[in-house]
Simulated scan of single mutants.
Amino acid sequence: MDHSAVLALYDRVMREGALPDGPGARIERAGAVVRQVAGPQGWNGVLWSGLDAKGADRAVREQITRFTALGRDFEWKLYAHDEPADLATRLLAAGFRAEPEETLMIGEVAGLAPATAPPQGIRLVRAADPAGVELVVDVHEKSFGTDGARLRHQLLARLSDAPGTVVAVVALAGAEPVGAARMELVPGTPFAGLWGGGTVAAWRGRGLYRALVADRARVAAAHGYRYLQVDASPMSRPILERLGFHAVSTTTPYLYAG
């Protein structure tokens, strides 16, 4: 895979040419910045910027003004290759707070490792209704230790208003949800995004994460997507590399609370 070419394609179609990530969200293009504005339960933030040193500070102030006027906290999703090179320092100086860095990984669906079956005693089921969403949220809260209210709202809205753009899967041990993940299918692009892969503590290290990736890769292939994209944690990165994903950049969320 040509890393530079794929990264340039990703920047062009998934960031600069971004589509809203759910019902009620909209994309705004303001000068050299592309941002998403959504309701309080949606994702609000900057997706792409084409800034230089001269205009960066002004653009940062403009985003703060825009989102605080709406009463929204927001995220500036900064990538390591974004310009200017000191944009992270400028964001911190403007009052943003950095979250842990993740690795942007991309894999060609056709070149990924062969499908991985779930561990013995586990079955994978689609979460396509409110009951299924509750199973996904339950795993999310147990795996990551964070409140799942926003995820619940987003999944229910997507499944209701744009069901062809999201796939959610739950791993069940009997009737107990022990793993879950979702995939966002972005219409008109070659990219599908893998998100929220979580496994409860007692089931980690048994291949469940790999099985959830393989399951979604099969769906992506059936829908004609060429690439899978993941923002990988340090724990996930080596697993994804073994499956055939490539690290093409890093991304850090910079959060601003108005």
Rank of each mutant, 00 (worst) to 15 (best):
Leu51Ser: 03
Asp52Gly: 12
Lys54Ile: 03
Lys54Cys: 01
Lys54Arg: 14
Lys54Gly: 13
Gly55Val: 06
Ala56Trp: 07
Ala59Cys: 13
Ala59Pro: 01
Val60Leu: 12
Val60Phe: 06
Glu62Leu: 03
Glu62Gly: 05
Gln63His: 05
Ile64Val: 14
Thr65Ala: 13
Arg66Ser: 12
Arg66Met: 14
Thr68Val: 12
Thr68Ser: 15
Ala69Val: 02
Leu70His: 11
Leu70Ala: 14
Leu70Gly: 09
Asp73Leu: 01
Phe74Ser: 08
Trp76Lys: 02
Lys77Leu: 14
Leu78Ala: 12
Leu78Trp: 10
Tyr79Trp: 12
His81Glu: 10
Pro84Asn: 08
Pro84Glu: 13
Ala85Trp: 13
Ala85Thr: 13
Ala85Ser: 14
Asp86Cys: 00
Leu87Val: 15
Ala88Ser: 15
Thr89Trp: 00
Leu91Val: 08
Leu92Glu: 14
Ala93Phe: 08
Ala94Phe: 00
Ala94Glu: 00
Gly95Ile: 15
Gly95Phe: 00
Gly95Leu: 12
Phe96Val: 01
Arg97Met: 01
Pro100Gly: 06
Glu102Lys: 01
Glu102Asp: 11
Thr103Leu: 05
Thr103Asn: 01
Leu104Gln: 05
Leu104Gly: 04
Met105Val: 04
Ile106Glu: 03
Gly107Arg: 02
Glu108Ala: 15
Ala110Lys: 05
Gly111Met: 08
Leu112Gln: 03
Leu112Trp: 00
Ala113Cys: 00
Pro114Val: 10
Pro114Met: 06
Ala115Asp: 08
Thr116Gln: 03
Thr116Trp: 03
Ala117Met: 05
Ala117His: 03
Pro119Phe: 03
Gln120Trp: 04
Gln120Arg: 15
Gly121Ala: 06
Gly121Cys: 05
Gly121Asp: 02
Ile122Phe: 07
Arg123Lys: 13
Val125Leu: 05
Ala127Cys: 07
Ala128Tyr: 03
Ala128Phe: 04
Ala128Ser: 11
Asp129Asn: 10
Asp129Met: 03
Pro130Cys: 01
Pro130Phe: 02
Gly132Gln: 11
Glu134Arg: 05
Glu134Tyr: 00
Glu134Ser: 02
Glu134Asp: 14
Glu134His: 01
Glu134Cys: 02
Val136Met: 12
Val139Asp: 10
His140Pro: 06
His140Phe: 15
Glu141Lys: 08
Glu141His: 07
Lys142Phe: 03
Ser143Ile: 11
Thr146Trp: 10
Thr146Asp: 10
Asp147Thr: 12
Gly148Pro: 07
Gly148Val: 11
Arg150Asp: 11
Arg152Gln: 09
Arg152Leu: 02
His153Asp: 10
Gln154Phe: 03
Leu155Cys: 07
Leu156Phe: 02
Ala157Ile: 11
Ala157Tyr: 04
Leu159Lys: 03
Asp161Thr: 04
Asp161Glu: 15
Asp161Tyr: 14
Gly164Asn: 11
Gly164Ala: 10
Gly164Arg: 13
Thr165Ala: 09
Val167Phe: 10
Val169Ile: 13
Ala171Cys: 07
Gly174Thr: 15
Ala175Ser: 14
Ala175Arg: 14
Glu176Pro: 00
Pro177Glu: 09
Ala181Tyr: 02
Glu184Asn: 10
Leu185Asn: 04
Pro187Asn: 08
Thr189Trp: 12
Thr189Arg: 09
Thr189Cys: 08
Phe191Met: 09
Ala192Asn: 07
Gly193Tyr: 06
Gly193Leu: 10
Leu194Lys: 07
Trp195Gly: 01
Trp195Glu: 11
Gly196Trp: 00
Gly197Val: 13
Gly197Arg: 04
Gly198Trp: 05
